[in-house]
Deep mutational scan, measured.
Amino acid sequence: RQGFVPAAYVKKLDSGTGKELVLALYDYQEKSPREVTMKKGDILTLLNSTNKDWWKVEVN
């Protein structure tokens, strides 16, 4: 499932696989259909980080 999360809630990881991955630093509950819920410690695939406030991710 793809959607947006606050950029301040995730940290980029060095995956070494060519995929950009991020680590969820905090729990986040989606507040609109365009967002996704994540739990602290989740590893997500980063799809787009051009917006400084909201990053598009895919929940694996």
Rank of each mutant, 00 (worst) to 15 (best):
R1H: 07
R1I: 07
R1W: 06
R1S: 06
R1T: 07
R1F: 06
Q2R: 15
Q2M: 09
Q2Y: 07
Q2L: 07
Q2H: 08
Q2A: 11
Q2P: 04
G3E: 01
G3N: 01
G3R: 03
F4D: 04
F4Q: 03
F4S: 03
V5C: 04
V5H: 00
V5I: 08
V5F: 01
V5G: 01
P6H: 02
P6I: 04
P6W: 03
P6C: 06
P6T: 01
P6S: 01
A7H: 03
A7P: 06
A7E: 03
A7W: 01
A8L: 11
A8F: 08
A8V: 10
A8C: 13
A8E: 11
Y9S: 12
Y9K: 09
Y9R: 07
V10E: 02
V10L: 15
V10Y: 00
V10H: 01
V10I: 08
K11V: 15
K11L: 13
K11P: 02
K11Q: 14
K12L: 14
K12Q: 08
L13I: 15
L13T: 06
L13M: 10
L13H: 05
L13G: 02
D14Q: 11
D14V: 13
D14T: 14
D14Y: 12
S15I: 11
S15D: 13
S15V: 13
S15N: 14
S15C: 15
G16F: 12
G16H: 15
G16V: 15
G16D: 14
G16W: 10
G16I: 14
T17R: 12
T17Q: 13
T17L: 14
T17W: 12
T17I: 11
G18Y: 09
G18Q: 11
G18N: 12
K19L: 13
K19H: 13
K19C: 13
K19M: 11
K19W: 09
K19I: 13
E20D: 13
E20Q: 15
E20R: 14
E20C: 15
E20K: 12
E20P: 15
E20H: 13
L21W: 09
L21S: 07
L21I: 09
V22P: 01
V22I: 07
V22G: 13
V22D: 00
V22R: 00
V22W: 08
V22F: 07
V22E: 00
V22A: 10
L23P: 00
L23H: 04
A24P: 00
A24D: 00
A24G: 03
A24N: 00
A24M: 03
A24S: 05
L25C: 07
L25E: 04
L25W: 03
Y26K: 14
Y26M: 13
Y26T: 09
Y26I: 10
Y26W: 09
Y26P: 00
Y26S: 09
Y26F: 13
D27V: 02
D27N: 07
D27S: 08
D27M: 03
D27W: 03
Y28Q: 01
Y28E: 00
Y28G: 00
Y28V: 01
Y28H: 04
Y28K: 00
Q29R: 10
Q29H: 13
E30R: 12
E30K: 13
E30T: 09
E30P: 13
E30Q: 13
K31G: 07
K31F: 06
K31I: 06
K31S: 09
K31M: 11
S32I: 04
S32Q: 07
S32F: 06
P33F: 09
P33A: 12
P33H: 11
P33W: 10
R34H: 14
R34I: 11
R34C: 15
E35A: 06
E35M: 05
E35S: 06
V36C: 07
V36A: 06
V36E: 01
V36N: 02
V36R: 02
T37Y: 04
T37P: 08
T37D: 04
T37L: 03
T37I: 03
T37V: 03
T37A: 07
T37Q: 05
T37H: 05
T37K: 04
M38D: 00
M38A: 02
M38R: 00
M38G: 00
M38E: 00
M38C: 05
K39T: 09
K39H: 12
K39W: 10
K39N: 08
K39I: 08
K39L: 08
K40Q: 12
K40V: 08
K40A: 14
K40E: 07
K40T: 07
G41A: 03
D42T: 06
D42P: 01
I43Y: 05
I43G: 01
I43V: 11
I43T: 06
I43R: 05
I43D: 00
L44F: 10
L44M: 13
L44K: 00
L44N: 02
L44T: 01
L44R: 00
L44C: 08
T45A: 11
L46T: 01
L46N: 01
L46C: 05
L46W: 01
L47Y: 03
L47T: 04
L47C: 06
L47S: 02
L47N: 02
N48A: 08
N48F: 06
N48S: 13
N48T: 08
S49R: 08
S49Q: 10
S49M: 09
S49F: 07
S49W: 08
T50N: 14
T50A: 10
T50R: 10
N51M: 08
N51G: 09
N51E: 11
N51C: 10
N51A: 08
K52M: 11
K52R: 12
K52A: 12
K52Q: 12
K52H: 11
K52L: 09
K52Y: 07
D53Y: 15
D53W: 15
D53S: 11
D53T: 15
D53M: 14
D53C: 14
D53H: 15
D53V: 14
W54H: 03
W54Y: 07
W54K: 02
W54L: 03
W54E: 04
W54T: 02
W54N: 02
W54G: 00
W55Q: 01
W55Y: 07
W55N: 01
W55S: 02
W55P: 01
W55T: 03
K56M: 14
K56I: 14
K56G: 05
K56N: 06
K56A: 08
K56D: 03
K56R: 11
V57W: 00
V57P: 00
V57F: 00
V57I: 07
E58H: 05
E58K: 07
E58S: 08
E58G: 07
E58A: 09
E58C: 09
V59W: 08
V59P: 07
N60I: 15
